[in-house]
Write a protein that binds this DNA or RNA. Structure first.
Length: 793
DNA sequence: TTCTTCACGCTTTTT
DNA sequence: GCGTGAAGAA
């Protein structure tokens, strides 16, 4: 095993003296096939280096090869390199690809991970410096919100007017900039409850410390604090990390930047790879400035541009490049390819979202019948609500698909409940976990009882479990709650003892059984309960893959995306544009290119030109995912939040280069990119003639607003909120029933008629009472009262 | 205490 | 359209 001679395995006394052997151990044949720039980026190992890597230019390859090169040149041990990424997925991929290059040695890359996982590892070593114990809990957004809610309520602030979510946003914003409560610039807390925001931030941080917990932002912030407070610790890390590699540098926020800069002060060997045109996380604190400023931050830094694209055909690349030139602040790159022209990017205008889904479904089928794979196709949307239409259509057509980045396994309620039990076993201090599961399953412990305990706990400054115990002894809790809590505490005690001598998957099973959680789900006849049981089984199985309970829990707290399972299956991928970074497919569909959808209304309203540019980068990312074919589409009418709106094609459509675009009209309306406005994209006129509107000059508010927004330079709509007018009930071509908010329309339904409902599939009408229908969904085993249905023509 | 109903707000995206 | 969370009813 080549990694047995690793730095970490040396006796501590020898570490300071340890030097990697100086001679290269292997031939540098891994450099074959790299172009001149890539090779330069790999071989420039020392000093600060910024690699500006455009889409599809072999960024990951350069990073991993560089890593291999450093190791093969014996410039450092694997464990003396630090490689940080943003997502777990990226970290995993990096490790896998490194393994192919350097074999077993990749296992010693113990400092390869996300910013958060590396931070957590560092923080566990020095937790006491920031007032934590090394077994601290990492809380997620859900816990964070509950904690904040308690704090805000305790301050007697109305949580409806000043929502915990908003406060969480402020705190995240501060933490993204590594701003501690005492460093908040004057005037910034004023947005919340008349300036009490800072106070709440302070209390929040204090509470976290008491709970021996951190949130995601803390992981980085505490690390920075440790480095700043203890120069000797920092010096240790300087000695350790001889080479630092950073992926997706354009997405770093201020805290991450500070973190990196502190660590890079040692050797100064830092290599950041990124693409300013793919910075799409500004809303969560990413500073494109970090990459724009790189040369100033790291004096003497070298910049290498990777501009040869190996992914897309020339036409696809031309579209993307042309579109992105509309952005102002760019470092500027000129991507080129030696690839052939390929097919033009297809732009298509359609009547509505269903037509769009239908067409894309057909395209995928014909792709498949031409002998290609489903898995070579991806549908990329701006927001997750747009996925539903495609799912429905694909189910109907029998096209296998997979939604990427849907509700994550470990964020599901049942999994979080199970985790809360484990957390309570690990530490009796975990108040958040206690609150979550004292009454889950129902033990007769209601809000009143919990509140009572909380009050006392706060007074005594003890954790809830301990307080509850004391109160039970003092007979201060009566009735159902008394027996409930008694049983709960006894169970915890017993499990804790058992956990010490049992395999950890087994203890999970015991907890689920004995707590009555499994029984609760078994008693629940809805189809969701079945899935939940399966999820829990999966959880127990996944636990078995970890050495210890603690290892498993660390994994869950940070790597919130387990259990993909059947990745090899031939499935169409449905995902958001954000989720698509770093991926590629031969055939890519980009639906929903309408003003206010993409670019999203919210982005335009809130962030003005800056957000608009970010949306454009998102479009750029979308197009550059395509290798052979790229289909862009927009519709005339779209259902948004249950309301029909007439919508305009996205301005991005107009920004495509006409000579590389093939504009196809599927509706009889002009979809030519250069003529959309003048030719009068027909959605509106068709809408006008619809009799149900009883008028001929109707224009939907959405359309007017969108039109106004398109015509302003900053992208902000000049109109306020327009009164909403309802679109008449929709009649769709498959002869199904569609929900409507118009009660009058819901007449003429017949008993026994089958209706469609999004969640439960087809059901039979059992009873009609005005506009109220009782529908029996036999397949799902659900009876549901469905209101406001309307019959199809 | 728990179950039911209703209104609201929100759907960018990640650790 | 959907889930959440608060208020009201059993």
């Amino acid at each position: 095993m080549s990694h047995s001679d690793d730095f970490d395995n040396l006796p501590i006394s020898q570490r300071a003296m340890a030097r990697p052997p100086s001679a290269p151990a292997r031939d540098a044949d891994y450099l074959d096939g790299l172009n001149a720039e890539q090779r330069d980026a790999v071989e420039t190992t020392d000093g600060a280096l910024l690699v500006l890597a455009g889409a599809g230019t072999g960024k990951t390859r350069v990073l991993t090869t560089r890593l291999a090169h450093i190791l093969n040149q014996r410039k450092a041990w694997a464990s003396q390199t630090l490689t940080v990424t943003f997502t777990n997925k990226a970290a995993r991929e990096m490790r896998e690809r490194a393994e192919k290059l350097i074999g077993d040695e990749a296992q010693s890359l113990s400092w390869l991970g996300t910013f958060h996982s590396v931070s957590s590892k560092i923080l566990r070593r020095h937790a006491e410096i920031v007032g934590l114990e090394s077994n601290f809990t990492i809380i997620d957004t859900d816990d964070q919100l509950r904690l904040l809610k308690q704090i805000i309520e305790a301050e007697n602030i109305d949580t409806k007017r000043w929502t915990p979510r908003f406060m969480a946003g402020l705190i995240d914003g501060w933490k993204n900039r590594a701003v501690t409560p005492d460093k908040v610039p004057a005037g910034e807390g004023h947005e919340f409850a008349n300036g009490r925001g800072i106070e709440i931030y302070k209390t929040y941080q204090h509470r976290l410390r008491v709970l021996n917990a951190c949130d995601f932002g803390d992981l980085l912030m505490h690390c920075i604090a440790i480095f700043q407070k203890s120069p000797d610790i920092l010096a240790d890390y300087h000695k350790r990390f001889k080479y630092i590699l950073v992926d997706e540098y354009q997405d770093t926020n201020v805290a991450q930047y500070l973190w990196l800069r502190l660590l890079a002060q040692g050797t100064g060997n830092i290599c950041c790879v990124g693409d300013d045109d793919q910075s799409i996380y500004g809303w969560r604190g990413a500073e494109v400035d970090n990459i724009l400023r790189f040369e100033k931050d790291f004096p003497g830094a070298k910049v290498i541009r990777l501009e040869r694209n190996y992914r897309s055909t020339a036409k696809i690349l031309a579209c993307a490049s042309h579109l992105i030139t509309a952005n102002q602040d760019r470092l500027g790159k000129t991507l080129h390819t030696e690839d052939e022209d390929g097919d033009a990017v297809k732009v298509r205008g359609l009547w509505d979202g269903e037509a769009e889904a239908r067409l894309i479904g057909e395209d995928i089928e014909s792709w498949r019948s031409s002998g290609r794979k489903y898995a070579e196709c991806a549908v990329m949307v701006r927001a997750s609500w747009q996925m539903r239409l495609f799912e429905e259509r694909f189910i109907m057509l029998g096209i296998p698909y997979k939604v990427i980045g849907g509700p994550r396994f470990f964020e599901r309620a049942e999994i979080r409940d199970a985790m809360a039990y484990l957390r309570l076993i690990r530490s009796e201090n975990d108040d958040l976990a206690f609150e979550r599961v004292v009454n889950q399953p129902k033990r007769g412990v209601g809000a009143t009882s919990i509140q009572k305990i909380q009050v006392v706990a706060r007074e005594m400054e003890r954790p809830l479990t301990v307080t509850a115990e004391i109160m039970l002894r003092g007979n201060e809790i009566r009735g159902k709650a008394q027996t409930g809590i008694r049983a709960f505490l006894n169970d915890l005690e017993r499990w804790r003892a058992q956990a010490r001598e049992m395999e950890h998957p087994r203890i999970m099973e015991i907890i689920l059984d004995e707590s009555g959680y499994t029984a609760m789900l078994k008693a629940d006849k809805t189809p969701q309960a079945q899935t939940r049981l399966e999820n829990l089984k999966e959880l127990v199985r996944a636990m078995g893959e970890f050495e210890s309970l603690n290892a498993f829990m660390e994994h869950v707290e940070l790597v919130m995306d387990a259990s993909q399972g059947n990745e090899s299956d031939d499935q169409v991928q449905i995902l958001t544009l954000h989720g698509a970074k770093g991926l590629e497919w031969p055939q890519v569909f980009l639906p929903g290119w309408e003003e206010e959808v993409f670019p999203s209304k919210r982005a335009i309203d809130e962030g003005g030109i800056k957000s608009l540019e970010e949306e454009r980068r998102l479009a750029y990312v979308g197009i550059t995912r395509a290798r052979e074919r790229c289909y862009i589409s927009f519709v005339a009418n779209r259902m948004i939040f249950g309301r029909w709106q007439s919508v305009m094609p996205s301005r991005f459509v107009d920004e495509l280069p006409p000579e590389h675009v093939d504009a196809v009209s599927e509706t009889g309306y002009s979809a030519a990119p250069d003529g959309l406005n003048s030719a009068g994209f027909g959605g509106v006129s068709r809408f006008d003639s619809d009799e149900s509107f009883g008028g001929s000059t109707y224009e939907s508010p959405g359309w007017k607003r969108a039109q106004a927004a398109r015509n302003t330079t900053d992208g902000r709509a000049q109109y306020g909120n327009w009164p909403q007018k309802k679109r008449p009930p929709d009649i769709n071509p498959s002869g199904r029933l569609t929900a409507t908010s118009d009660p009058e329309a819901a007449s003429g339904l017949k008993l026994g008629q089958r209706v469609f409902h999004i969640k439960f599939g087809y059901g039979k009408i059992k009873q009609i009472d005005g506009t109220k229908l009782t529908v029996d969904f036999e397949k799902a085993g659900v009876k549901k009262v469905v209101e406001k249905f309307v019959e199809a023509a």
